[in-house]
Nucleic acid binder design. Structure first.
Lengths: 370, 370
DNA sequence: CTGTTAGCGCATTCAG
DNA sequence: CTGAATGCGCTAACAG
């Protein structure tokens, strides 16, 4: 004995005690139905008696597979992905799978390294966000030899299976709602633009152009393309405040374009900031300026006035991705490669301009309704 | 050859090509300084030429150790822990460590199972939240054979090292601030109570009692002790809305106790809901009712009026925990077993009642300042 | 349904 | 500083 084992009982100990071969114990552990009931019972007893716990590393080495699902998200800042993660964790319950979570920081290069690293331990499955993988990443993923699910976006050409929704259509539909509500000078606010934000902006733009209302001057951005300042940079203890940014963008827009009559914010926190700015300026929402956000976090409904937003199915996206993983791991097929979860335009008081039109003869009432 | 390897080059291939023993390659990989420079260069070249990548599972089996840091948090709902996670991820950069994240759902039994599961693969380190571990969990952690860090709370008796702050003192100090600001009937709002919430409540209570102001009737709770309804239950796609809860608690309190003049909310979202409720009722903040939250998320400062809150160092807590892990992994000692990160009472307009007192001769001005 | 054989790829031990 | 032998604990493969 040159080597010191940890003293824990091994599968051989169990096999000896149960009077069977080690492989039978191994089989019993992984698929009890492949072992006769009689022997199964004996093995179970031996396992209990010895307090045997299989070593995951040995299993991994021998099988080239682990129980680890690698999940890659672009951000951990409190935002949409925390709900996605909740869905993933709710979906993984009682599966024996573990989750290794990585933060790509909206950086495809980092994502590539992380996929490479993940592959080194033979993951049970990989869940990645979006469709912006580098060619090398895509290739690795195609050859991963395990289920691969893309989430939170849509594409005609998924790696294997994608579950999400169209950011373009979401941006377009909310903008159409604002137009229908009677707004004409509709601004777009964004903190910084990632691939999915750009799709939403394009939807906004197309909706306005089809109504002949597009005005590039109404796009409010911080002019920042760097995710680093979005709280994703290392060693910054407080993320850049979107609420403050929304307030600043709103105040700025009011100065530059006092005729603005609605703002479509790329995220909810931004819209909260915009609301606070309008409150401070005593500008009535939705009569004078309408507000819409994106994501539909819980506080949107509770706000005063209630803030309109695009509800996306974050939790379901994570949950369904995990279900798809489990289905495939149990031998099921990939199924529909493109799953569109859709979204809902939540129309609330903050964009209910009709209220003004409906009560145009009694303006003081309209104001008191704010 | 009964077995099909994955065809990837192994350490033996590298050793052969470099004309050295396998163990020398192994050594070179883990601590290059223990191999002569000449051989090191040859090995490096062979690795490059063969495109060799060490197999993590084989390494794990042979060494009984992985590069995985297991992190256990009680919740993934967008709250304090997303910032803690950011800190952890910022702290893990370029360390070669991976993070396996588990959600204990505020349940010590689940936590126990997860610690047990984590131990099966020989984690590099374990980070757990709070001090509520079961005796069995504690025992496993004490014998884990790897660094163990507790975070986000404080205790005299940490498992090994704890990094956090005193929830009791935080609750106490914010309450004292409210008293000093001139409030006398100060309510406490909580959605549901976990161990740390209870500590804050105790701090609130003690602060009021020392000023002879405690009134149990002013404690507003949903009477719910079950984290399940706090968004932690599986298969619930939308977490229970704290903002809505804050609004309801506020409206309820106004009805029950119209003389309430301040509310200390157990979390920021609750305080946001309270603010919206007061807005809707046209009750002036901070003149008629003061509001304070807990956590100090970014929107607190951006709110109108700015909302007071207890700023806790979430990010730093995660980051420092990771630094402690790395320090120990590099052979450093545990250091100070109890690290108090403290907190800051952020005094903003929402609790600035002095403003009223300062302008008592000109009440109309006071109101317009709201 | 069950067992035997032969590794999986790396790191430990101890001698040199 | 280096290497040979051996084992980590489990499972793939095939035969029976």
């Amino acid at each position: 004995m040159v080597r010191t084992s940890r003293g824990r009982p091994t599968i051989a100990d169990v096999a000896a005690k149960a009077g069977v071969g080690a492989i039978t114990v191994s089989r019993y552990l992984r698929s009890p139905e492949r072992v006769s009931e009689a022997r199964g019972a004996v093995i179970a007893e031996a396992i209990r008696a010895l307090n045997y716990v299989p070593d995951l590393n040995a299993r991994a080495l021998a099988s080239h597979r682990t129980d680890v699902v690698n999940v890659l998200v672009p951000s951990l800042t409190q935002n949409i992905f925390s709900d996605v993660l909740r869905g993933i964790y709710d979906g993984v319950e009682d599966s024996g799978l573990r989750i290794e979570l990585a933060n790509t920081r909206y950086n495809s290069q980092i994502e590539e390294q992380q996929v490479f690293a993940a592959l080194r331990h033979g993951p049970a499955a990989i869940i990645v966000s979006g469709t912006e993988q580098t060619p090398a990443t895509r290739k690795m993923l195609e050859n991963a030899g395990c289920p691969v699910i893309q989430i939170m976006d849509l594409t005609d050409d998924p790696i294997s299976k994608i579950i999400g929704f169209s950011h373009y259509r979401a941006g377009q539909e909310m903008t159409r709602h604002l137009i229908e509500a009677g707004y004409r000078r509709i601004a777009f606010f964004a903190g910084w633009m990632n691939a999915r934000s750009k799709q939403r902006l394009q939807g906004y733009r197309d909706a306005l152009e089809e109504a002949n209302l597009f005005d590039p001057d109404l796009i409010g951005e911080t002019g920042n393309d760097d995710p680093a300042t979005n709280g994703e940079i290392a060693a910054v203890s407080r993320p850049f405040s979107s609420a403050t940014m929304g307030r600043e963008l709103m105040l700025d827009m009011l100065e530059r374009r006092p005729d603005v009559d609605a703002v479509f914010c790329n995220n909810d926190v931004l819209s909260l900031g915009a609301l606070f700015a309008l409150n401070a300026r005593q500008i009535n929402v939705p009569e004078q300026v309408g507000i819409a956000g994106f994501n539909d976090f819980d506080y949107m409904e509770a706000a005063h006035p209630g803030l309109s937003s695009v509800r996306i199915h974050r939790w379901k996206c994570g949950y369904d991705a995990m279900q798809a993983v489990r289905h495939q791991l149990e031998g099921g097929d990939v199924g529909e490669p493109i799953v569109d979860l859709g979204f809902d335009i939540m129309k609330r008081a903050s964009t209910d301009r009709q209220k003004l039109l409906r009560s145009v003869e009694q303006p003081e009432l309209a104001l008191s309704l704010g």
